[in-house]
Write a protein that binds this DNA or RNA. Structure first.
Lengths: 201, 201
DNA sequence: ATGTTAAATAAACAAACGTTCATTTAATTA
DNA sequence: TAATTAAATGAACGTTTGTTTATTTAACAT
């Protein structure tokens, strides 16, 4: 056999990315073979190389695309002026975005060490850009005297960690709706920075 | 050559565990070969099998030992009666224990998916045992009317995530001492559950 | 001193790895 | 319709993988 009936390059390329994402998230980059990806795409291993230069590029592109899309999505949010409201906006944004893309989030945190140095630098830079968002919000709230924080940098990292942690236990059919989880986290985060919400959200 | 001068079984077994821990944490279980471990131990690959049945057992034992030691260490702490003080005790305990064993912590969170089903179940059970600690503290504080939480389960998971997250950015030579970091987190956590410390800690 | 056990070596195993290549066929363009 | 390009196949490449085995030697017990 050779080229199969009805095959289209763009479609295959897309499927490769989807499958790679799914498998990397499930088993880890190093534990997934190109043959395994090919099998799930429905193609022979060699065919993958018509669409990507190598395995490493597959991972790098997935991570870079995710981080860039995350930053772009935040860029399109309109921000309230009040730091407390900004913080709430960020909490909801982060939870919503991450729960919608659990696999991307997972590999972004798990597979950084499997990137070759140059690729790592690129992704790490995007990540720091994202970390700057809560850092700036907290710094603004602290400057304005609205927050009560001993250290805004540590607080930002702590908040990010707890927000991202949602993806480890959230189940679509679980006890709590996504909306409810957001509310719980908003309260938790707002209390942790030392403010209380005025109205009962 | 064969048995080398001065070789002792117990020593080698210990070194294998140490090296495996270090390499698994650095590169991930799947990315580390038995030959790589052997090289760092200073032995041929085949010799590893005098001390462990296979690679999977190496990982399982590391994770089981860590989780059991963690639970034992908590068991030896003496607990104050007041839930707020219990929470502070837990925060400091968790940070201290985890910052002292960054590699163990790392693989405990990263390599669960590389465990075969039976091994996974065992480790997961130990982990849930540990998660029950903050859950129970929060539930007690909430019952006593001292905490202000919308959901104690979610809060417990959030707090655990943010505490464990310390290991991702803490550097021994960094800006903040471990003591100072503990203090920051105690304030953050206490505020997040809805209490404020009486004295200025 | 001798016999036994423990702990290593070195070579080998089949299987799987990422990747390449010549070839074939479908889709597209002229 | 013919020529060209795109997208597959399937076999092969040389490595590397986890693990086993026969053999050798050091450590230990009698």
């Amino acid at each position: 056999m050779a080229r199969t009936h009805g095959s289209k390059g763009e479609e295959t390329a897309k499927r490769i990315d989807e499958v790679a994402l799914k498998l990397f998230a499930k088993k880890g980059y190093a534990a997934v073979s190109m043959r395994e990806i090919a099998l799930e795409v429905g193609v022979q291993a060699g065919a993958l190389y018509n669409h990507c230069p190598n395995k490493q590029a597959l991972l790098t592109n997935l991570l870079a695309d995710h981080m860039q899309a995350l930053l772009d999505a935040w860029g399109e949010m309109e921000l309230p002026k009040d730091p407390a409201q900004q913080l709430e906006t960020f909490v909801r944004f982060h939870i919503q975005y991450h729960l919608k893309r659990p696999d991307q989030v997972f590999i972004s945190y798990m597979e950084l060490r499997n990137l070759e140095p140059d690729n790592f630098k690129k992704i790490e830079a995007l990540r720091r850009q994202y970390e700057a968002i809560p850092k700036n919000i907290l710094a603004a709230g602290q400057m304005a005297g609205q927050f009560n924080l001993a250290d805004t940098h540590v607080a930002a990292m702590a908040i990010l960690a707890q927000l991202t942690g949602v993806t480890t236990w959230y189940r679509e059919q679980g006890r709590l709706s996504q909306q409810k989880i957001e509310d719980i986290y908003v309260q938790l985060v707002c209390q942790s920075v030392g403010i209380t919400l005025s109205g009962g959200h």
